[in-house]
Amino acid sequence: MRKFILKRLLISVGILIMVSFIIYVLMRCLPTSYLETVARQKSMQPGSKSFEEWMQQLSATYGMDKGIIPGFVTWAGRALRGDFGDSWKWTVPVMEKFQDSVWISFIMGAISFVLEIAIAIPLGVIAATKQYSKTDYAITVIALAGISLPTFFFASLLKLLFSVKLGWFELNGLVGRNYAQLSAWGKFGDRAWHLVLPVVTLVVISIGSLMRYTRTNMLEVLNADYIRTARAKGLSESKVIYHHAFRNTLIPLVTIIGGSLPGLFSGALITETLYSIPGIGYVSYQSMVAGDIPFSMFYLTFLAILTLLGNLISDILYAVVDPRVRIA
């Protein structure tokens, strides 16, 4: 087991190096005029350095004056020590901005993740046990509609209905206008209230795939021989489904859920942007659109790490949860 994890870790590190190298090359290949634009914008800001100085600094800081490979080595060396440089857009160290924004994303992601599991798995199980019934069709279509629903359209509809027509929520932002005057509990409530629409959006958008996954796996288990045996023994239907079938469905579910845990930190790029929630997704979106290379480099690498971590966790979980799996 230890050998397996070690091997996977090594492969992951290799992949990570390659991915960050590709991202780095990509960043370097952006049209140079683009970098000049950034430098010009920077130098326009009041009290800023001149254009040439910015160009020099940008080139020096990001190894733009070096070749691609030495530049990458420099960048990677710093990144290993946790130094991703200063963000151009936010004019603070990248890590500082990251620590400011990641927690709100995590909270938002975690709440919607829990809701998603709590809604999707029971519905998926029901759909599978009543295959080809009206309930099954309804659940399948709803799940597909959730997958097909473009985030931005759904968010706009929610805003129109609940913010404009009913006036229950504000259109965007994390805190209300009078946030500063509120008590500690009031502040907490205000933030929670502002998170309702984003969380609803996230849950509805992501619920479909988990629901379908549950249904498919449950169906597979229900067709297995040992379920027929259980029924033949005369067990009650609920016992068959919840003791024998569901436990076996849990194997792929736990794997996939475990694998998506790291993703909670990645932030919801589109949803956060739509609701202007200052989480890591929205902050990165702003940085990327502004051409903030240090922050974008960091964010892309961070996402790659999260993906690799997710794969690693699900692989390990798969072996842990299902004793039939032999690790070579």
């Binding site: 991202i23 990509l26 960043m27 790029l269 990327m288 790659a304 993906t307």
Partner: peptide
């Protein structure tokens, strides 16, 4: 698989 596609496309779009 590891390359985050949405952010990459956003960056290229902005460029």
């Amino acid at each position: 698989y590891c390359i985050p596609s949405m952010p990459i496309i956003i960056i290229l779009g902005a460029a």
